[in-house]
Design a binder for these strands. Structure first.
Lengths: 126, 126
DNA sequence: GGCATAACGATAATCGTTATCACTGTGGTG
DNA sequence: CACCACAGTGATAACGATTATCGTTATGCC
């Protein structure tokens, strides 16, 4: 198990302090702005380590990976293709049906990602 | 509406000729091997145009985008994290539940992607 | 035939991410 | 306490997929 160093703790604190979905660059800047400069490579390594330990979660979007706190119940994401806003939702039945589908195909499920794309309520106005 | 040029027709033919999920590089090589050399930039542009016209579909994986024929009924994907094998499955109820979830959040749905990760039956043996 | 326009193809540029490598901090161990 | 092993750090180079650039080419229309 890797160490929870000062830097990794700082990354974790930032992520846990909000419900945002952060990318590596945003985290680097946020920490620098807070007077805790950190190397971008350290951020990437830290994020990988924290995720491996289950302390944070990630979603893989088309261009980049985004990280969020793990201390919430499982959910999936809706991404607004206009403004980038990310809405969360969870649906227990969907999870169950996924399990069933995997079982049917003889697939040993280790993870999944459901992302829905569309326009958030705000962006539908225009 | 963009044109269906010789090159784009060739890309489309390759994709429609199998149930594989192709990336841009594989398509370029396949066409070159078939005696129809094509520029990689042309492949990318062609793929974008073909997808915009609904003639092919794509899935965004962590590292790259893969394209498949569009003349099949809608389905989602299971990706083997060991060998890269892609299995398809469809579940009507899941689609309906997604619609419901989007509606609930006031989200105007334009697309979605559900990818499940795990081990295919072959890779579980080892 | 000539011209406007979209597409092509070679290649440079971009961007997120990973690898490299010299250096640093930490935690045993003798 | 000094030393060593080793994971982590940070600057930066490298990488890989994709996009932009730009001169050239093909196509369709008057």
């Amino acid at each position: 198990m890797s160490k929870l160093t000062t830097q990794r703790q700082a990354i974790l604190d930032v992520i846990n302090s909000s419900n945002r979905h952060w990318d590596a660059d945003e985290l680097t800047r946020s920490l620098s702005d807070a007077g805790k400069p950190i190397g971008i490579a350290t951020v990437y390594r830290g994020l990988a380590a924290l995720e491996a330990q289950g302390l944070i979660h990630s979603i893989q979007l088309a261009d980049k990976k985004r990280y969020e706190r793990a201390d919430k119940e499982h959910h999936d994401h809706m991404v607004c293709t206009q403004c980038g806003h990310i809405e969360e939702f969870s649906h227990q039945t969907i999870e169950q049906l996924q399990q069933a589908a995997a079982h049917e195909k003889n697939f040993k499920l280790t993870g999944h990602q459901l992302v829905m794309f569309g326009l958030c309520s705000g962006c539908q106005q225009e």
